[in-house]
Design a protein around this nucleic acid. Sequence first.
DNA 1: CGAGCCCTTGACACTGTTCAAGGGCGGTGG
DNA 2: CCACCGCCCTTGAACAGTGTCAAGGGCTCG
Lengths: 221, 221
Amino acid sequence: MALEALFAPPRQIAAREEIVPAGVDVRHSTLLLSGLVGRYRSDAQGRRQLVALHLPGEFVDLHGYPLQRLDHSVEALTPVSVATIGHSRLTALIEGFPHLGRIFWFSTLLDAATSREWTFRLGRLDAEERVAHFFCEMAIRFHAIGHGDGRRFRLPLTQTDLGEACGLTNVHVSRVLGSLRTRGLITYADGIAELPDPDGLATLSGYSADYLYFGDTHPIP
Amino acid sequence: MALEALFAPPRQIAAREEIVPAGVDVRHSTLLLSGLVGRYRSDAQGRRQLVALHLPGEFVDLHGYPLQRLDHSVEALTPVSVATIGHSRLTALIEGFPHLGRIFWFSTLLDAATSREWTFRLGRLDAEERVAHFFCEMAIRFHAIGHGDGRRFRLPLTQTDLGEACGLTNVHVSRVLGSLRTRGLITYADGIAELPDPDGLATLSGYSADYLYFGDTHPIP
DNA sequence: CGAGCCCTTGACACTGTTCAAGGGCGGTGG
DNA sequence: CCACCGCCCTTGAACAGTGTCAAGGGCTCG
């Protein structure tokens, strides 16, 4: 089955550009081919919270297919390349191959599990633990798609981005990264993250990757 | 179609009892008939974060159907009554009535949208705003199922529960509730919440209920 | 009557924010 | 080619918000 043929030709989007605005009807979903994408929930006072971060190979708005509109915006964090697929095509695909429907459902639930983990992170961890926890997740997810080895990977975010992910100010992120660096746990400069001691980092933040459901077979025997 | 016949007979569970533990294989899903249920993500140090709260009429672990195990525990917050349905029955149901599959998927995505909102709440709101925001959500959700009128409803939680929902200590919840009471925004005693000025409360916390997707038709024309 | 839970209040410590200033770096236009 | 501007990071000092610890009161249940 030539899946690519069902997608529109790849489209390039500049860093910091909005890909899908909150609240409007969506008629297609977006597969991220390269670059990083963030999803933001923000309020009237301009406070922005990153509620999801997507790596290449992930749909950034597959939940928009059943929901029909998004409760948050979707923005490119770096220059990105995306391919979109119309919702009517998704419907046809799923009708033709019901197993695909299960895979799509599963995929949106992974997203939800990550969201719960972020809720936990923001609700119960202090600043250092939050940053450590975030880097643990990133190391593992990048490793899983073949970017880096779980200890060293490209993560082209600003400290303001990290703050928006971890519920901190950019100033405090800077201090926390300094502290983690002197403790030999994270060095992060020029968009390259290095974790000399991933186990130590996981211990510090109480990190466990169970919520990523790696190695789980896809749904329903 | 006699849906009830597909569920096991209702089962009563005492307050504070675990309904589904984290990490184990699940073979059926649980519909909440009465009472309140919480889902918790916790760490080795015993810090607990409420990551979802369920009202009667909601599935508390429908995502366990595709995921096959849960990344969090599910616990009764009050005495509850539940009915379970086996996953094999769900599979048969969905195969027989594909539209049901869409509804189930949609339902788990509502859950995910709420989780994003909680992430935002914890990441970007201060203590008073968090509590206000939480009460706004509860008022609307209880109203939607015919419990209360959007201004007054039963919410039999302790202040420790509220703290676990809002990422605060029980002590600080007590102070915040005191402050909101003197400002005429919330009175909460004996498990009864009263919001004399719901609009004021929504303004204070920047609350918008868009993420609950009320009035949205179910998926796919 | 006593035990235990829940809520409240106070004093104090600590974590993270705010405000401010300065340095490095890259891109752009003169 | 250089000067300038804007963005990003760092650091300091003062401050605000929230947690911690502790004590006491009310209530329910045994």
